[in-house]
Design a protein around this nucleic acid. Structure first.
Lengths: 217, 217
DNA sequence: CCAAAAGTGTTGTTTATACACCCATGT
DNA sequence: ACATGGGTGTATAAACAACACTTTTGG
């Protein structure tokens, strides 16, 4: 019952930062693909569930835990890793923008956030993994509450709208958006407001079902 | 680069038969779970792509090839197989009803088609795999042309409607269904008709894009 | 002429889209 | 008083859902 197949998990970590959708990459310090940027990930431990493996890698690379994590797809082309036969179970995670700071928990030199439109060449088949994760995220915007996973505890409707605009790469009508998102019944007013600079304060909202991504419509 | 993890694929094979959605199961002849019904599947070969592994298992168990096959999910709980650490990449396949006959290509005693509502107890975590596959199939009916994969070369609109009714387990309005399915633009008349018994002949259709499952609306 | 499935339109309801002005605040 | 983003409603178009009768055939 042993084999010459190794199993890893790789994680595509998304966040919203500087008004863009960013992905976390790490620079490889060892062969193969030494010096290339790659998705965080690593080998499955002996007695570890695969979800736990992905969570562990996420925590080790970003210091973040308790965020949305979903299995994406399993990649297993025989030649995808020059070292030998490695099957990787790809996950993707969504991190609220506020928590991005915790990235300092890891070796700062070797970690970076990249926009989808300024990606470096990636190690292994990680570009294919990343592309699929991005497609899944864009698709899920339309039929789930996945975007809420990017939000901090409290947020304004404009904050939330910005997430949709950034991921869709196109403007969203303010009134229609508010009608739609309030009609979902998945967020509620906190009663507080955010005062910022010289403008009218914005009402703050929170998600009613913090850890759940619901399928909608 | 070797490990004590084994990798398998398991396949949930759906077809429409006797006016019901059926799943192919095989009876295990060896321990563990000897005598229990299980999903067809088997170990990943050394130089084999994982999709190819699933295709091979499908062919070995049913004699069928060239059908719709899609990766479902990867299951890897450390205790899911009593023999040791086995991660399984689950797939699901859709077989046109006409081709079901080819099942005789395998050991007839040990193979059976089961309806979702009369399933036996299954080996391993195969009930969880099967449940997920079924949910995926039902979900995909609503936003893809996946149901066409159950159809033979030529079929009537009533045949196709029956597939939707069987999977959804509820009646579908004939006029709305026809408007919708013809409006998709994915099927066309063959020009032929099917005469059967003492009733008005039905027009025959074929799918325009035989091997593609399109995402719709 | 009967039985059985094939085929065909209209209406009302819900959902999505387009679009522009007033409000509250800090300086 | 002004600059900035916050907040609000209506009208049109499109998609979806409900619903019943006529047609064609073989016996």
């Amino acid at each position: 019952m042993s084999s010459n197949v190794s199993v890893t998990t790789d994680i595509v970590i998304f966040t919203i930062r500087d008004e863009a959708l960013k992905i976390l990459l790490i620079r490889r310090g060892a062969k193969p693909y030494k010096g290339r940027w790659a998705l965080p990930g690593g080998f499955l431990h002996a007695e570890e569930d695969i979800d736990d493996c992905a969570r562990r890698e996420l925590r080790e690379e970003t210091g973040v835990s308790g965020v949305y994590l979903e299995q994406l797809y399993t990649f297993g082309h025989p030649k995808r890793d020059p070292r030998g036969r490695v099957v990787t179970i790809a996950y993707y995670a969504l991190i609220p923008s506020e928590r991005v700071q915790l990235q300092a928990a890891t070796d700062a030199e070797a970690v970076g956030w990249f926009s989808m439109d300024e990606l470096p060449r990636l190690a292994f088949d990680h570009d294919a993994i990343l592309t699929m994760a991005h497609e899944r995220l864009v698709a899920k915007l339309n039929y789930s509450t996945i975007a809420f996973q990017f939000m901090p505890e409290q947020f304004t409707l404009s904050d939330l709208q910005a997430v949709y605009e950034i991921i869709r790469q196109e403007p969203v009508d303010k009134r229609n958006f508010r009608k739609w998102v309030l009609g979902l019944g998945h967020i509620e007013e906190t009663g507080e407001e955010r005062r910022e600079g010289t403008m009218r304060p914005a009402r703050l909202y929170r998600t009613k079902y913090r850890d759940t991504v619901a399928i909608i419509k």
